[in-house]
Each structure stands twice: as structure tokens, then as C-alpha cells.
């Protein structure tokens, strides 16, 4: 299995994470993504990442999946560190080395100099914890949930039926299209063309055209039959009265996680909002001073 194939394929297992309702998982992912936006404190961001990683470990994913995850997380963290090392603009900052000297003609004047700052690395690492948590939780979700459950979850979140139908179709053809892309590239190689081995971007564009053309032509042909097949099974004849065979039922565990998560999230967000109101000078009351302290130290 290629890395790409492994990335898009969910695992089947009976762990706590696997058994959670798809809606709960989507909720947790959204909640976490809101949380990482509201959190500023390195301690809390790290804590969150540790928690998410522990969840990932508890899902007993295959070692290769964990490896992919680890590599992606490390790359994302390093990438953020790299960019922040260059663009860090708080003080104090220590220049490690100079990339563009501000006194260089034109480029120096335009950029105002480009330096690598020591503090930027640490700052980037802390900020990257947000991405790391999101990345881990995202892949955890997709690796432990069948796409159809996720889609069913989305329908419960009021995604229009046409859109969810399109998504189902798109997901269904994912492995097929991946195979087709591989085949097309192989065909090109067997005809003496090296599609990906080039630093010449014109050639890369040509490769893209050569590859997309047969794939998309195939999509167009396929769409004709699929449309007839869907319509002959009553697709869109009465979208208002459509029913669903599979329902999602919350278990006690799901409800627990859902409520717990909501309370936790609302709590954190509320404290942070109150703190931000104080911080920005909009509202202050001495009653909440303890809370301000808490927010300052942890959020």
C-alpha cells in the first residue's frame, strides 16, 4: 500500500475512539479547532497536544499509520518554526544569521532585511502545536471512522442532500481515480516520458495536462452512466421527503463525551472571552480577578 492509499483508508477496530459516534468525533474535532484558536498559553497547547496524541495511541492504529502521522506532525512543526524564525517580530529577538542584509541594494530595501531569529524558532514551535493537534486529531478521525458515517453525520448537521450525495460519490471513486492516475503515469513512462523527473516547470505543466486529460475524460464518460443510474433510482424526485435507512444513535458514552466536551469548550471560551474583554479594555469587573489570573496563566 502506498502512503497515499494508507492515508485515505480507515482502519477497523473496536477501541473507544473507533466506537464513538461520527457526529461526536466531528464535534470534538471542531471543538478542538476552536480551542486551539482560543488558547495562547504554551503549557495548555502542549497539554492539548499530549492529550490528542494519547487519544491517537489509544486507537491502536497500525504502526505505519503512526509513522505517517509522526512524519507529518514533525514536518508541520518544523515548517512553522522555519517561517516564524524568519518573520518573528516581537522583541527581544536574537539574530542567528542574516539571509538578506537590509543594506543590500533593492532586495534589502524592499524586504527590510531577512534574518533568522532564535526566538522565532521557539515561538514557531509553540504555535505549531496548534497545527500538530489539529493534524493528529484530523487523521485520527479519518482513520477511525468510515467515510459513510462521517457523511451521515454531516447530513445530521444539515448539509444539503445533493452535496452529501456528491461527496459520497466523490469518496467512492477516490481509490479508482488514484489507480487511474497511477496507470496514466505508468503509460507515460512506458512511452519513454519521465512525467515527474524534471525541474523544468513547463514540462511539469505538460505532465499535468497529459495526466488530467485522460482522467477527466474518464470522469465525464462515467458521469453519464452514474447520472442515469441515480435518476433511475429516484434521485432528486422528492428531495423534501427523502428518508434515511441508517440513523446514528448516540450511546451513553457518546452523550457523555458530547456534554463533557461542550461544557469544557464553553467554559474555556467563556473565560477567554471575559479575559479578552478585560485585556482590550472593554469590560472589567473586580469580581473576576481570579478568573483573569487563571486565564492569563493558562489560556
Amino acid at each position: 500500500m502506498s502512503i497515499a492509499q494508507r492515508m485515505i483508508r480507515p482502519t477497523v477496530n473496536a477501541t473507544f475512539i473507533h466506537q464513538l459516534d461520527a457526529r461526536v468525533k466531528i464535534f470534538l474535532l471542531l471543538a478542538t479547532s476552536v480551542l486551539v484558536i482560543f488558547l495562547d498559553n504554551p503549557k495548555s497547547l502542549l497539554l492539548l497536544f499530549v492529550f490528542v496524541s494519547a487519544a491517537a495511541l489509544s486507537a491502536r492504529l497500525p504502526a505505519k499509520n503512526l509513522k505517517i502521522l509522526a512524519v507529518l506532525v514533525l514536518l508541520a512543526v518544523w515548517g512553522t518554526m522555519f517561517s516564524q524564525a524568519l518573520f518573528y517580530s516581537k522583541l527581544p529577538r536574537t539574530v542567528l544569521f542574516v539571509i538578506i542584509h537590509p543594506k543590500w541594494p533593492v532586495i534589502g530595501e524592499l524586504t527590510g532585511g531577512l534574518f533568522v531569529y532564535k526566538q522565532g524558532f521557539t515561538y514557531g514551535a509553540v504555535q505549531a502545536l496548534r497545527f500538530a493537534s489539529m493534524l493528529t486529531l484530523g487523521l485520527l478521525l479519518s482513520w477511525t471512522t468510515q467515510p459513510r458515517d462521517l457523511l451521515l453525520g454531516l447530513i445530521h448537521f444539515k448539509v444539503p442532500y445533493e452535496v452529501s450525495f456528491m461527496t459520497v460519490t466523490a469518496v467512492r471513486f477516490l481509490p479508482l481515480v488514484m489507480n487511474e492516475v497511477r496507470t496514466v503515469l505508468t503509460v507515460q513512462r512506458l512511452r519513454g516520458y519521465r512525467p515527474l523527473k524534471s525541474s523544468n516547470w513547463i514540462k511539469l505543466i505538460r505532465t499535468s495536462l497529459y495526466t488530467l486529460k485522460p482522467i477527466l475524460a474518464n470522469c465525464l464518460r462515467r458521469a453519464g452512466t452514474l447520472a442515469v443510474s441515480a435518476e433511475s433510482r429516484g434521485f432528486r424526485v422528492n428531495p423534501e421527503e427523502r428518508t434515511y435507512w441508517r440513523g446514528l444513535e448516540y450511546s451513553y458514552m457518546d452523550r457523555g463525551v458530547l456534554w463533557g466536551g461542550t461544557v469544557f469548550l464553553v467554559g474555556i471560551v467563556a473565560v477567554k472571552v471575559v479575559y479578552l474583554l478585560y485585556f482590550n479594555g472593554v469590560y472589567y469587573t473586580p469580581f473576576l480577578r481570579e478568573l483573569y489570573g487563571l486565564a492569563k496563566n493558562w489560556l
Binding site: 492515508m7 485515505i8 466531528i26 479547532s33 489539529m134 479519518s142 457523511l151 461527496t167 469518496v171
Partner: peptide, 10 residues
């Protein structure tokens, strides 16, 4: 979102 788990407001 469904395949890579990229569900987030951002």
C-alpha cells in the same frame, strides 16, 4: 474533511 480530517473553522 472526510478523508484527511481537515475539519476546522479555519
Amino acid at each position: 474533511g472526510v478523508i484527511l480530517g481537515h475539519f476546522s473553522p479555519v
